[in-house]
């Protein structure tokens, strides 16, 4: 499932980050920030207007990601694929 579709509060594990287009700098940045396979992440909150951006907890850091950015991250949520 995409991180942008993950339910609020659920623990998830990063599977992969997909490039939206060849040599996608946003995907590269997400990987640099720790969005790599096996890393636990959690969707903490959604923005007040249209549920965008998303507040994502990874390690001890919180990032605000727009939905289109979070959609690049493929995750497992709690056992369900």
């Amino acid at each position: 499932m995409r991180l942008s579709d993950a339910p609020k509060g659920a623990q998830a594990v990063v599977q992969s980050v997909t490039d939206a287009h060849p040599s996608d700098p946003i995907a590269q940045r997400l990987r640099d920030l720790g969005f790599v396979a096996g890393e636990p992440v959690r969707l903490v909150a959604r923005g007040p207007l249209g549920g965008d951006p998303l507040l994502i907890q990874i390690g001890s850091t919180r990032f605000a990601l727009r939905k289109t950015e979070a959609a690049r991250v493929e995750v497992f949520v709690g056992g369900a694929a």
Partner: peptide, 9 residues
């Protein structure tokens, strides 16, 4: 092109 938000809180 898409310019990212990706912002640490």
């Amino acid at each position: 092109s898409e310019h990212a938000l990706i912002m640490e809180l």
